[in-house]
């Protein structure tokens, strides 16, 4: 591994100041499961590593029926995967994290790290977009909050400015009649990057589908919402014909590329199939 300078900031202010002072060669280190690979494989030139694990308060996780779910930047994927409240109230997120890497990786990897890596295929992102989650960001000029949906500007790129650090995630509470699903499509069951990921979060309410959000992974430069598909389903009683129409709309909203994992045409087809399935699972789900 290429040598780097190592820092252990004790506060967010110190970490943020270090990031500003050290410039582009500085990287935040939390789980390290992506960063260390990128350093080893020389995919990224890193001269300074800032371990934020000594900063207090970033490892909290809480759920409240009125407030929803909140967790800090140091909360690991495995902790989310095995948390009783997440399993019960956010089965889409629980499914997504359980499919990320291996248990060994998930014991180290953080969900916030998976978000900040900004891979279009990241498993944790579609469910968080579908659930209208927001990120808390600490920066040199103070705190701000950004919807997960608005966080990405391209593969590996986010709206984060110099010195900014994502400190945590907030997910709104589930509705009493909510239904959620995440389906990861890959070539094998484990140790896989998503070929297509589809997350659905809906509130059946009175109409059968009072509110719905559909998020797609690995089929555009960033994870995206299938807004046209949502609009077709929102406020309607969903039948197979309507669902097929929405699935077609989601396919048309995706702009996948062909790569080693799948062709663009196959990915687009799978968006249709998986949107249909994921909405079906969410409609059946009982919280």
């Amino acid at each position: 591994m290429r040598p780097f300078e190592y820092h252990e900031p004790k506060s967010l202010a110190e970490a943020s100041a270090l990031l500003c002072a050290l410039g582009a060669g500085a990287s935040i280190f939390a789980g390290g499961t992506d960063l260390l690979v990128e350093i080893k494989e020389e995919l990224r030139s890193v001269s300074h590593v800032l371990n934020i694990k000594k900063i207090e308060g970033l490892d909290a996780l809480s759920f409240d029926k009125a407030e929803g779910l909140s967790f800090g930047a140091l909360v690991t994927a495995r902790r989310i995967e095995t948390d009783a409240a997440v399993l019960r109230h956010y089965p889409n997120l629980a499914t997504a994290v359980s499919l990320l890497g291996s248990i060994q990786v998930r014991n180290r990897a953080t969900v916030v790290g998976n978000i900040c890596r900004a891979s279009p295929s990241a498993d944790t992102i579609p469910p968080l977009i579908a659930d209208a989650a927001t990120l808390s960001i600490h920066g040199p000029t103070g705190e701000r909050s950004v919807a997960v949906e608005d966080f990405f500007t391209g593969p590996g790129r986010t709206v984060l400015k110099a010195g900014e650090i994502v400190t945590g995630v907030h997910v709104p509470p589930p509705a009493a009649t909510s239904g959620k699903a995440y389906i990861k499509h890959g070539r094998r069951k484990a140790m896989e990057l998503a070929t297509v990921g589809v997350a659905v979060s809906l509130d059946r309410g009175r109409s059968g589908c009072d509110e719905i959000r559909i998020a797609l992974g690995a089929v555009a430069a960033t994870p995206i919402r299938a807004r046209k598909a949502e609009a077709l389903l929102r406020g309607r009683a969903i039948d197979p014909a309507l669902l097929a129409e929405a699935a077609e709309a989601a396919m048309n909203e995706s702009t996948p590329i062909s790569n080693v994992r799948a062709s663009a045409a196959y990915r687009r087809d799978m968006v249709g199939v998986l949107t249909r399935r994921a909405v079906g699972i969410a409609l059946e789900a009982r919280p």
Binding site: Y6, G32, T33, L36, V37, N51, S102, I103, Q104, V105, N107, R108
Partner: peptide
């Protein structure tokens, strides 16, 4: 359990 190759 962790991958010791991904721990400093």
């Amino acid at each position: 359990p962790v991958n010791s190759c991904l721990v400093l």
